[in-house]
Design a protein around this nucleic acid. Structure first.
Lengths: 215, 215
DNA sequence: GGAATATCGAGAAAACGGTATCGATAAATC
DNA sequence: GATTTATCGATACCGTTTTCTCGATATTCC
């Protein structure tokens, strides 16, 4: 029976795929044409069997003793993640964090293009930040609506995040990428990804605390 | 038999604890004195039993029909995560991303104080960025060594990350918080946390792709 | 004071993800 | 051409995390 991959990939797999992609990209630049799970696993400190399982989700099949076709695999990951066609995004909150994202060229290659930025600060409105024009927050809803922008990125302070999210949802955004340290309430059908820096820090400092007490 | 909590908390628990902390903080500011798992779970969209298990790791016990003492619980989480005593950190790479972290006041309340920043750009060296002095990269090793700084934060481009990590390790740093999109090779005993923005984006765009194809 | 109820805490069950095993196969070697 | 070897792909196994179930208990209401 052939492998059915209508089944969505588990989240841990999705989170590893960009790492594979990046590694394959460097191999491709180095002129390689094939790649094995073993080598991927070694470079990324993962288990070869696990890598094989992850890659199976892209539908690519490899050859025994050879591995996978490098470019085919890379492109399969890219397409699997939806990186092939560009989706537009708006960003709200042009603080340091927002600027960092605005200036991150690579997003475009990862299927996301930030087409406009928004802020409440009157002196920023009309300016260009990292090459993107900053608009008044009032215009957020209309911009999303008229341009049918699917992704909203929130890099505001926590207090402002929910209001911004509401506007985005109301205007028809399909996904929200939230960097504000706040739990957002959005309807069921909205895709919500929350980047919580402090969660990562908690793991680090907890490990550090354990280590310190062990000494 | 009393509950042994020498056992380290699982990583998913650690990652949820900051969320609990933040919620408890807002409740405390609102003047509440007790809190139940049920209400925490509802606010954070989690399962009450799961929340109870997470909180058990802090050693706090609650009262039936009442819940937990709010302040006691909040402080227990803080101390459990090692947020009570400040650890010093250095940051390398004062691009937009580095600036964002340098300016993030909250880290201090989360047990981490960035005491110096480093960059290769000669025109930045000697300047102050977000109130922190920028030093030349040459001085990184010595600074870590002489001040016994336990945490190194990497916000450089990917190509520079491994070299910076090597210097940090060689100088005696215990933990590395890596924001560069690169797999770092560090000795076993070094605590390494990698924040991979693109991983989060992959989840979002994959869900979007699934949704788009379903329509 | 007794009944009802919300909540905790512990243990059991289930689901999920990660790891190991094994047969199949394509290339390389002899 | 036979043998060896690296690798894939599928299956089975195992551990961890989440979810479920249950009994105990403090508060509230009657």
């Amino acid at each position: 029976m052939p492998h059915r991959n209508q089944m969505p990939a588990p989240q841990p797999t999705l989170r590893r795929l960009p790492g594979y992609f990046r590694f394959l990209q460097t191999l491709a630049e180095a002129g390689e044409t094939t790649v094995s799970c073993t080598s991927i696993a070694k470079a990324l400190h993962l288990d070869p069997t696990g890598v094989r399982k992850d890659l199976a989700f892209t539908g690519i099949i490899g050859k025994p003793r050879v591995g996978y076709s490098l470019l085919e695999l890379r492109d399969a990951i890219s397409s699997f993640l939806g990186w092939d066609d560009i989706r537009e995004a708006v960003l709200v909150g042009t603080g340091d964090f927002g600027r960092a994202l605005l200036g991150y060229e690579l997003f475009r290659e990862r299927g996301v293009e930030i087409v406009a930025a928004f802020d409440v600060a009157p002196d920023l409105v009309g300016q260009k930040v990292r090459g993107k024009e900053v608009l008044a927050l009032d215009a957020l809803g209309d911009t999303i609506r008229t341009r049918q922008i699917p992704i909203g990125i929130i890099t505001t302070p926590a207090a402002a995040a929910q209001g911004v999210a509401d506007t985005m949802v109301e205007a028809g955004a399909k996904a929200i990428w939230n960097f504000a340290p706040a739990v957002l309430e959005v309807p069921e059908h909205i895709i919500l990804e929350h980047v919580e820096l402090v969660a990562s820090l908690a793991v680090l400092s907890s490990k550090l605390a354990v280590r310190a007490s062990a000494e």
